[in-house]
């Protein structure tokens, strides 16, 4: 299978990472913000797999596997906190979080 240049993959992962950052910074819905974090983690994984292939070292695959595990745990805890905060109120919106204004 033809595999392109490494810089193409790095570019792609950087763009996806920025889109994830945009999701966290620009959106106010905690669910979408959490999905933005997942996008960022996946962008890291893409870069890991590409680098791993380029160096011919499978450590990157192990790293990506660990990131997937951590992402699952993080999603579980994050969603639990979102449920605990918002279960009683209809709206899911960080701007409603007014008691603690930095």
């Amino acid at each position: 299978m033809a595999v392109g240049e490494l810089s193409n993959y790095v570019t792609l992962s950087a763009v996806l990472f920025f889109l994830g950052v945009a999701g966290v910074i620009l959106r106010r819905n905690p669910l979408v913000m959490l999905m933005g974090v997942e996008l960022m983690l996946n962008a890291s994984n893409l870069a890991l797999v590409a680098f791993s292939r380029a160096w011919g070292s499978m450590v990157g695959h192990i790293f990506a596997f660990l990131v997937i595990t951590v992402a699952a745990a993080e999603a579980a805890i994050g969603l639990a906190i979102i449920v605990v905060v918002f279960h009683r109120s209809a709206r899911v919106d960080v701007d409603d979080v007014t008691i603690l204004k930095g």
Binding site: L26, N29, A90, D96
Partner: peptide, 9 residues
């Protein structure tokens, strides 16, 4: 309904 609050987007 499941409202989406005002976004900064």
């Amino acid at each position: 309904s499941f409202e989406v609050g005002p976004d900064r987007l």
